[in-house]
Design a binder for these strands. Structure first.
Length: 156
DNA sequence: GCCAACGTTGGC
DNA sequence: GCCAACGTTGGC
């Protein structure tokens, strides 16, 4: 990783559960409840100052709606120890927590959603994995060159 | 270590 | 409601 460039990510959430409107109201949020090792590992490789595209999934149409900034990393996900949480993990252990997460800050909402259909017209699966059919990973890296093109499309 | 069964995500 | 894409689990 060269110099001080920030990395870019794409993070999915269902707007009915937690959408850009919720984040704008709260200003910051803990991105907890991630129970997929690959997604967790992507969060572990995030750095403060990285930016994440907020993607609304499982909605019509799905697409990128806003931008967030990573403001804290390496946070133990408290929901894994909460028996009343749907994210409770009975197999994790307070001495060696299995799940952690990051805190994100609202930056902005884009004037228009960049829909999945539009993304498919502009990107290959190598450039932006979310365009692959059946992709279930809720956190994905976005290559720098792809981020540049995303910002350009979102500014139009 | 293989692999079938199962579960989840999420678009269609 | 269906199903594609995978990750996870467990029997062997």
């Amino acid at each position: 990783m060269a110099g001080k460039g920030v990395a870019y990510w794409l993070m999915k959430s269902e707007p009915d559960v937690y959408g850009i409107d919720h984040l704008r109201q709260e200003t910051t949020t803990l991105w907890d409840g991630i129970r997929n090792y690959q997604a967790r590992n992507f969060m572990r490789s995030m750095a403060i100052g990285d930016q994440a595209f907020f993607y609304h999934s499982n909605t019509k149409p799905p697409g990128i709606v806003g931008l967030m900034e990573v403001i804290e990393t390496g946070i133990t996900d408290p929901s894994q120890f909460d028996p009343s949480s749907k994210y409770h993990d009975p197999d994790t252990n307070p001495d060696t927590p299995r799940w952690d997460c990051v805190r994100l800050r609202y930056l902005r909402e884009f004037p228009r959603m960049l829909t999945l259909d539009q993304l498919k017209e502009s990107f290959t699966v190598d450039e932006l994995a979310v365009v692959r059919r059946g992709n279930r990973l809720s956190i994905l890296p976005v290559p720098d060159a792809t981020a540049v093109r995303l910002f350009s499309l979102l500014a139009d």
